[in-house]
Structures are given as C-alpha cells and as structure tokens.
Design a protein around this nucleic acid. Structure first.
Lengths: 342, 342
DNA sequence: CTGAAAGCGCTTACAG
DNA sequence: CTGAAAGCGCTTACAG
C-alpha cells in the first residue's frame, strides 16, 4: 500500500480508488455526490481522497461531459471602477458557489467580442456572463440554440429572450433631471453614452420624460453624443459651450462623462456649480472625490454583478427556465455639484 | 461532403480531417504549427478549419498533454485600484499573447490562498501569476518541484528562487521621507502595511535610512502598524494623535492608508497639510482626487502586471530559465498634502 | 449499491 | 510527410 506524497497534486481518481479498494467509477460517484453509494464506502473514499490530497482535474471532468465549474466572464476592459465593482460582485458570488471564473476582455472591439463568445461556446464552460456587451444580436441566437446558459448585465436583449440584470435607468435619469428642474434650471443638457448600450437610451428617455412632465420644452441641441468616457465628454462639453444659448446644467450619462465635462469647464475657467450644475450617473468611487463632489445617480454595481451570477446559477440548475429580468433600484445621491438658479 | 453549419461551435478536428481528406493527426499537426507538413496539406487544412469555424477545445488539448493556454491569476480581492491596475496590465499582456486568464481570489485568507494554489497545480494551467500573495513559503517549494512556471508580483521570495517583479520601495520611501525632512519635519510617523508583504519591510527600511542619513533620530513610537487598508490606518492615526508629542507628518505605507489617516484627522478637526503633512504610496487613481490632493510615491502598477506576464512568458518558453527579478522604478509625485514647517 | 466499458477532443510517440 | 494507436483524467450509461 504505497502512500503517495500528500503534496503531489497529480493524484487521480485511480489512486484514490486503489487506496480505498473500490473501483474508480465508485470514486467518481462519491466525488460527484451521487446518492446510491453505501455510507461506509463514501466515507472511506472521501477520507482517502482527503488524505492523498486529491484535487479534481477540471479539464478532464468537463471533457467527459460533466460540469466544468467554470464560468466565462466577458467584459469590455478592466479599466474603470464601474467595471471592477461589477466584477467584484461577480467574483464574490461565484467563489461562494465554488465556481471558477475565466476572464475575457473585448477591449471594446466588436470583432473581439464576437470571437470571444465563439471561443467560449466552443470550450466547455458551464455558462457565460456578459457585462455591457456591444454586439449581442450577432450571437445571442447561437447561444440559445446551444442551450448555453448566459446572462446579460446592464444590457438589454430587445428580443426579450435573455436573462438580464438592469438598473432603473429611466427612473434614475428622471429623478436627476427633475432635481435640476426643481433647482430652477430650464436649459439642461444631456451628454449621452454609447448608443449600443440600452442604458443610454433608457436614460435619454427618462431625461425627456422629466422635461415633458414639468413643461420644459425638449431642445435637441442640448443632447450631445458621448461614449461614457472622459475624452468624448470633454469634446461634447465644448460643443455645448459653443452654443449661443449655453445650458445652465449638464446631466451626464455616467460619472466619467461628468468628470470629462468638469475638465472641459475648468479649461474654460468655468466653475461648478457656480457657472454650471452637473449630475452624473453610477456613483463610482471617484464621484465622492471630485471637486466639488459629484451629485449623481447611484447604481448598485456590485449587486448587479451578484444578481447576474444568481440568474446564471438558476439557469445552471434548470436549463429550461424562461429568461428572467432583474431590475435593481438606483438611488439619487445629492452632493455639491449643483446649484439653484433663478 | 456535408457542409456543417459555420456557426456550430462543436466542430472537432475529426470534422476538419474528414472535410479536408487527411487524418486527424495531420490536422492536429497543422493546428499546432508543426513544421513537417506539406504546404498544400497545411493550406487545405487551415482553409477548411476556417470555413467550418473550428475552435480548439482547450480542455481536451490540455488534457492530452499540450498547452492549455490558460494562466492562473491569484489576487487578494478585486476591491481597489492598486489591484485592478495590476490586473489590467496582466490582462492586456496576456490577451496580446493569446493566453486565457482564470482568476482566483483569496479574499486575503491564507487558507484559501493555499487551497487555490493547490487547485491550480492540480489543474492544467500553463502558469501562475501571484499578486501580493501572503503565504508563499508554504507552496513555492512544491511549485518548483513540479516545474510549474510562476511569477511573484510585488512580493519577494527570501529564498531567492522565484521570478518576481518589484518596485523600488526602499528608494521611494527614502525619497518621501527625505522630502518631508527637507520641509522641516523631524517628527515623522510611518504607518506600516501588512507585515506579510515585502514592500512593507522595504519601505520601512527606506524610511529609516532617510532619517539616519539626515541625522533625524529614529523614534519607534512613531512607527505604528497598519495593513494597507483605511480602517486600520484610521485607528493607527488615532494612536499617533494620542501621543504626547504628536508627529507633524505621516508617511503612509500606501494611498489607502493615507486616506484612512486623512479621515481620522478630519474627525479630530485637524486639517491637511496645515496641521499634518501626509505622503502616500502607489498613486492610485483616487490619490489625485483627495482633498487636498495627495503627495505620493507612484508605482507603475500596470507595468508591474505587464512585466509579470513577460517573465512568465519567458519561463513558458524555457522552463529551465533561472529565476529573474525585475525592479521597476517608482516616482515621487508632489501634490498638495504636505507643508513646510519651521 | 458497484464494476467494466466507452467516450469526451485532443496530442504525441511510433511506424512507415 | 502522414496515419493508426494509445492515453490524458474523468463521467455516464449499461449491466449486474
């Protein structure tokens, strides 16, 4: 009876089988928690697996048709806390569920996004989490045909056939706009986000709805296009400042956009909130540290990640589960970047 | 000759072999870039692989003894930009090299860290990147015996047998302390980081060296223990403020520590830099947004991630390569959190 | 409740 | 230059 080195990770089920005097099939069964195994057998196997330091080989397991216990996570890029907070929530929840995470970054490149999804379909992951994907329409259908479990995070499938987690973008934008109106602003600009993302459209709609409900006429010149990034926001703000009738307030599609706008204002020697009121969206960590501190609409980012995992887990347990939509509540956070005007 | 659906990801080398009229062994060879394949054969195979939309099954490949093309990444937790900047660099470089990344978070739990490393050794990853690991001594030996390629990022192997990427912590701390001394400070406190991390010791040594070189006597009461987090820093700062002779400046082991210290000072109605000068370390994104903006020692975090990948790549190509150490330059960044005193 | 067999998709000697 | 065979570590019907 050879005692293997407990530190040698190359212990297989054959080793465990030999040591515990059962067949490797039985070992596999107890390791997978099958019910029809004699208790004494189970204990013996578990004990020797532990003693030998057995660690399952995930590749082999998944190849053989079992679960791989690995989930693919597709994100644009690990470069701002909007993403990292969502990823933190996902990671937490996944590791609590004993699932591994393999990360794919698209670098906001649609071709790469499609390539990655294809790779993921081809490999043997148990499921896929897509954070603000850009080109969903090109692969959602294929994913579904394969019965490949997936969840959209902060993105919407207009076909209505995908599980997704969203925030109350419309309401958040509505409240932000309403707040500005309540402060006396009438010329309120909106810098949009990326047009590929649902949240952009939903926030724009909320903005328009608030204007309408409060009798402020919608003026298309005050809606300028951004892409959720500082740089574009900077340019968009410059365009706004070149208008004959400048806005008195800017509602930015997200916090990074708000920061970019603040940079542009500073370069024009305009100060916030004296010369321009600003509201953001997201409440990323930086928002509490801008100067002045940014008034914004908080999204429960980490929770969005967690909810995404939970939706996925449900699909993993029941692959015929109809798609579900989880909508998380935003919260308006008043800080110092807005001022009442008369 | 059945044409398969190009969108069906379940295309295997058998399909490619059948379609192109060669054996699956040959297909495998061309897919792996072997040299002894007739050019026409290679082209034919490549063309049909492309046409059928073949995607390699990584699990199978690695099981069969080939490379898995996946690298394990072990991090404490995705919860602050020190980590996420390093991860961003790693992710970038890895995807440029066509390598997949599987993420393991330890939640700063030593048992979990050891468990994860064990799992990684057992599974078939090609290599492992460890970012500020806490319990290296317990598994480095095993990793080496398995010839498992790994690189330490911002952590040191005292045995000198590991490849690692570090920053000039000593020098950075020296410069920070010297700067404070140059501003007239003599009672300079140091809030340490986690004692398990090399950087803590290296920075402490730099701090002491600067004091010594400038004839400022070292006073142990001014060294208080932190753990790189705001909360501990808050308490450490309170201890400092309870001293009979309060320090006039605090050198914090990292920016989060500096922020925690600023919070404590604010709660004592003390202002920075009027009542207390503060220097941080890292220059995470937040550092430019504190109020006042934080003077700090910049670490090239993203570059540290990139260098880690490069070291790993070298080992992947030549597993007998002796361990290498890469030391990246820090940079002192003066902002507004320090004041000259007389 | 348990064993023997087939097979997941691939790589790699071994022959030729 | 290329094919047939064995095997990576595991799961899952199929028998019993």
């Amino acid at each position: 009876m050879s005692v293997k080195d407990p530190n040698n990770p190359k212990v297989t089920i054959y080793d465990v089988a030999r040591e515990s005097g059962v067949s490797y099939s039985t070992v596999s069964r107890v390791l997978n928690g099958f019910e029809f195994v004699k208790d004494t057998t189970r204990e013996k196997v578990l004990e020797t697996a532990e003693r030998l330091g057995y660690v399952a080989n995930l590749q082999a397991r998944s190849l053989a048709g079992g679960k791989s216990n690995v989930i693919g996570l597709l994100v644009p890029k690990i470069d701002n806390s909007y993403i990292t907070e969502i990823v933190a929530g996902i990671d937490d929840e996944l590791s609590a569920a004993n699932l591994n995470l393999i990360l794919y970054t698209t670098h906001r490149h649609i071709g790469k996004e499609q390539q990655n999804v294809k790779t993921i379909m081809g490999s043997m992951m148990d499921g896929l989490l897509l954070v603000v994907p850009l080109a969903t329409s090109s692969y959602l259908q294929a994913l579904r045909e394969l019965h490949f479990p997936y969840v959209l995070i902060d993105q919407h499938d207009y076909a209505g056939e995908s599980s997704e987690v969203l925030a109350t973008n419309h309401q958040g934008a509505y409240e932000a706009t309403e707040y500005l109106i309540g402060l006396g602003h009438r010329r309120i600009a909106f810098i949009t986000g990326l047009m590929e993302l649902y949240s952009t459209h939903d926030r724009l709609a909320g903005y328009k709805a608030a204007l309408k409900d409060h009798g402020v006429p919608f003026d298309p010149q005050y809606v300028v296009q951004g892409d959720f990034w500082k740089q574009e926001a900077y340019h968009a703000t410059n365009r706004l400042l070149a208008l004959d009738e400048r806005p008195t307030a800017i509602f930015a599609a997200n916090d990074l956009t708000a920061i970019g706008a603040m940079n542009a204002l500073r370069d024009h020697n305009l100060s916030v909130p004296e010369d321009m009121s600003i509201v953001g969206f997201d409440d990323i960590a930086q928002a509490a540290y801008t100067n002045p501190r940014l008034t914004t609409v908080r999204q429960p980012l980490e929770q969005m990640g967690r909810s995404g995992v939970n939706l996925l887990l449900q699909q993993l347990h029941d692959s015929d589960r109809p798609p579900q939509q989880v909508v998380l509540q935003t919260e308006f956070v008043v800080r110092d970047s807005c001022k009442r005007i008369d």
